[in-house]
Computed example of a mutant assay.
Amino acid sequence: MRKILVIGIGAGDPDHLTLQAVKAVKTADVFFILDKGQEKADLVELRHEILTRHAGDRPYRVVAARDPERDRRAPTPGYAPAVDDWRRRRADVCEGLIRDELGDGECGAFLVWGDPALYDSTLTILDDILARGAVSFGYDVVPGVSSVSALAARHRTGLNQVGRPVRITTGRRLAEEGFPEGAEDVVVMLDAHEGYLGLRDEDLDIHWGAYVGTPDEILIAGRLAEVADRIAAARAEARARKGWIMDTYLLRRRR
């Protein structure tokens, strides 16, 4: 039977790979890479660097395919259908890769940014492919260092306070709903809407990071009312320079 490994590769630093992930990389025959285009070519280059550093001196293949475009501007009523459509088209691509590029008895791998269990679609897509019944394979998951844990480490802070919960949400929900009622610590991911800008009247601290773990890393922390505009300016400059941005932040209610 074909086997697939879903390997979390961390937030951007090749040293984020766990020993388990390094061992997994050394066992795969084929590495599947979904190319997001020239604008995000450095994400592909990082994966090649990881293979050069960790795959060892053995034969392996790298097979790339273009990642389908997703409508990221869909309004909230159409957001779920837009994501479903994108996942279906992505499943079509991944199914073709497994069917055509992975032989019986071979092991293929997807190198997943961050941790496969946190705001990543790979596991859902593999289950969808199996449910179709046209391709058969087994798969295992190797956890990775998420951008959330990397952010906390770089800011030398915890995600939660003693005996208190932490909530993880998206920028879209933050922009629509505001700071969650009753929450004290909120991690925000996927914030293309810069939802923190609408919270400057709240008494909050922010720990913000972009490209965490990479040479382009940017870290800003402080009282939200005082640093929100600085973050927005740094974010705009970085996005204009690189063509894309991946950022995460922790909002904490001040006491």
Results as ranks from 00 to 15, higher is better:
residue 12 G to S: 02
residue 159 L to A: 08
residue 175 A to N: 08
residue 152 A to P: 01
residue 104 D to K: 14
residue 243 G to Y: 07
residue 143 P to M: 13
residue 182 G to V: 04
residue 15 D to N: 14
residue 120 D to T: 14
residue 206 I to D: 00
residue 214 T to R: 09
residue 202 E to S: 15
residue 254 R to C: 11
residue 82 A to F: 00
residue 245 I to Q: 01
residue 79 Y to E: 02
residue 137 F to P: 01
residue 179 F to Y: 05
residue 118 L to V: 14
residue 146 S to G: 10
residue 76 T to V: 08
residue 176 E to A: 11
residue 6 V to N: 05
residue 166 V to C: 10
residue 71 D to A: 11
residue 50 I to V: 10
residue 235 R to M: 03
residue 104 D to I: 10
residue 75 P to Y: 09
residue 243 G to H: 09
residue 163 G to E: 00
residue 35 D to C: 10
residue 254 R to I: 12
residue 250 L to F: 02
residue 70 R to L: 14
residue 20 Q to S: 15
residue 121 S to R: 13
residue 146 S to L: 03
residue 110 F to R: 14
residue 1 M to V: 08
residue 159 L to C: 03
residue 199 L to R: 06
residue 180 P to W: 04
residue 84 D to L: 15
residue 66 R to K: 15
residue 66 R to D: 09
residue 95 E to L: 11
residue 171 G to N: 12
residue 143 P to Y: 10
residue 124 T to E: 15
residue 100 D to R: 15
residue 95 E to Y: 11
residue 49 E to I: 11
residue 63 V to Y: 06
residue 97 L to W: 02
residue 199 L to C: 01
residue 206 I to T: 05
residue 250 L to E: 00
residue 60 Y to F: 12
residue 210 A to W: 02
residue 41 A to C: 08
residue 148 V to Y: 02
residue 139 Y to E: 03
residue 219 L to S: 07
residue 36 K to R: 11
residue 15 D to L: 14
residue 206 I to H: 02
residue 232 A to C: 02
residue 250 L to G: 07
residue 184 E to C: 13
residue 177 E to M: 12
residue 202 E to N: 14
residue 61 R to Y: 05
residue 101 E to R: 15
residue 114 G to E: 04
residue 225 A to L: 06
residue 138 G to Y: 01
residue 52 T to P: 00
residue 240 A to F: 01
residue 167 R to T: 11
residue 38 Q to W: 05
residue 41 A to Y: 06
residue 81 P to M: 09
residue 207 H to N: 05
residue 233 A to M: 05
residue 59 P to L: 14
residue 158 G to Q: 11
residue 92 D to G: 13
residue 133 G to D: 00
residue 5 L to N: 11
residue 197 L to Q: 08
residue 176 E to P: 03
residue 218 I to N: 04
residue 128 D to R: 15
residue 26 K to C: 07
residue 150 A to F: 06
residue 161 Q to M: 15
residue 151 L to P: 01
residue 83 V to F: 10
residue 140 D to Q: 13
residue 29 D to V: 08
residue 132 R to F: 02
residue 245 I to L: 06
residue 105 G to A: 09
residue 177 E to N: 10
residue 232 A to R: 07
residue 190 L to G: 14
residue 83 V to W: 10
residue 165 P to A: 12
residue 85 D to Q: 13
residue 25 V to Q: 04
residue 179 F to D: 01
residue 252 R to I: 00
residue 211 Y to L: 04
residue 77 P to D: 09
residue 85 D to C: 14
residue 176 E to N: 06
residue 209 G to S: 08
residue 47 R to A: 09
residue 16 H to T: 10
residue 153 A to Y: 04
residue 17 L to E: 00
residue 112 V to H: 05
residue 118 L to H: 08
residue 218 I to Y: 00
residue 224 L to C: 12
residue 11 A to T: 13
residue 144 G to I: 07
residue 89 R to M: 09
residue 250 L to D: 01
residue 106 E to T: 09
residue 4 I to Q: 02
residue 136 S to C: 05
residue 231 I to N: 02
residue 31 F to T: 12
residue 234 A to I: 04
residue 2 R to Y: 06
residue 237 E to C: 06
residue 78 G to N: 13
residue 152 A to M: 06
residue 201 D to A: 15
residue 134 A to G: 12
